[in-house]
Amino acid sequence: MIVVEMAQNSTGIDLERVRESVERSGKSCRVVSGREASYIVASDGTDTSGVSALPGVRKVNAVSCCYPLASRAVRPGSRPVEIAPGVVLGEGDPVVMAGPCAVESRDQLLETALAVRKAGARILRGGAFKPRSHPYAFQGLGSEGIALLKEARKASGLPVITEVMSPEEAEWVAPHVDILQVGARNMQNFSLLKVLGRLDRPVLLKRGMAATVEEWLQAAEYILAGGNDRVILCERGIRSFDQNTRNTLDLGVIPLLKSLTHLPVVADPSHATGRRDLVLPMSLAAIAAGADGLLVEVHCDPGAALCDGPQSLDPEEFSRLMTAAKRIMEAVREEGTPWERMLAR
């Protein structure tokens, strides 16, 4: 594929001139207008001999992968994602997002929110809409849950992340939260991804339960192609044959993604393992592997949780995780992650 990156001072006329030049070569192309830069993405075989000399063109990239806007071939460096003032994913120490799998009540959410903030979490997670395998399981509080998340954000000072499952949900929820989450089951919900590409909100995209890395990055490309460049990838475990854990946390994918894409990468050890006793060690391993953040389930009373209690930490357990995580962060800061050392060779 060919990706034409426009200069920041380019005009709409410049962009249209480049588009017409590419289309005259007989190839289809797509204009992507991002917050930081605009691109024209064209199919293979486009003759670009005259394109690079046109006014407003910064660079012309030939890319062999099928996720050009997500690739380091187009953007060599990492692209941090700002969530709120002072909260940036992909820059500095890993950011921990913590809270209940599902918003159940005002007291439950506020107690948990204040506890995770005290322990050092930077973002509050909480599900208002819950996609469940069992149709009779608790499906979340919906709009009431969103209202409670807004209240918890005000009380704790933490930005919030919540999952959306449909284009309609994404559009009305976006103004009320700080990050929109796409769950594993919706990774290839292309109608949802297209809408998220048009919204001015960071998007956390979880890996599908049986998705390849290429499929995952192509899903991210849908959002980027819509003009939304604030995409975060989340490894949440993939389905395997072993029943001792809920899923298999693919730690190797973290440094792999760092070599392929500029997008921040976080890990969800809660869904990956399904066991609270494994959440702490796998969190530390993810940080050591180079993760830009963690997504951890915390509940003020896991035994009474309406959703995923066995994998949820209580506030005391989460506090221990954060203490241990800080030690790993210090070591990583001093030595550098394996993928950073690899790229420095």
Rank of each mutant, 00 (worst) to 15 (best):
I2S: 03
G12W: 12
I13S: 11
D14M: 08
D14I: 03
E16A: 14
E20G: 10
V22Y: 00
K27R: 13
V32I: 09
S33A: 15
G34H: 02
V41E: 00
T46A: 14
D47N: 13
T48K: 04
S49N: 08
C66D: 14
P68M: 01
A70D: 09
R75Q: 12
R75H: 15
R79C: 14
P80S: 13
P80K: 11
P80C: 15
I83G: 02
G86S: 14
V88S: 05
G92R: 10
P94H: 06
P94A: 06
V96E: 10
M97E: 01
G99S: 07
R106V: 14
Q108T: 07
E111N: 12
E111Q: 13
A115Y: 12
A121F: 15
A121D: 09
R122H: 15
R122Y: 09
R125N: 12
G127W: 04
F129P: 06
K130R: 08
H134P: 00
F138R: 00
A147L: 00
E151K: 10
K154V: 11
P159W: 09
S166G: 02
E168N: 07
P175H: 11
D178A: 10
V182N: 08
A184E: 13
M187N: 06
F190P: 03
G197L: 07
R198I: 08
V203L: 07
K206R: 14
K206I: 13
V213D: 12
E215Y: 00
E221A: 11
Y222E: 04
I223D: 05
R230Q: 14
L233A: 13
C234F: 01
E235S: 11
E235H: 11
F241D: 02
D250S: 04
G252V: 15
L257V: 03
L257C: 11
S259F: 10
S259R: 15
D268S: 08
A272I: 01
T273F: 06
D277N: 06
V279P: 01
L280D: 01
M282I: 03
S283F: 06
A286R: 00
G290K: 02
A291N: 13
D292N: 14
D292S: 06
E297A: 01
G303N: 06
A305M: 13
D308H: 02
G309V: 05
S319F: 02
A324H: 10
A324D: 10
K326S: 15
I328G: 06
M329D: 02
E334W: 08
E335F: 12
A344S: 13
R345L: 10
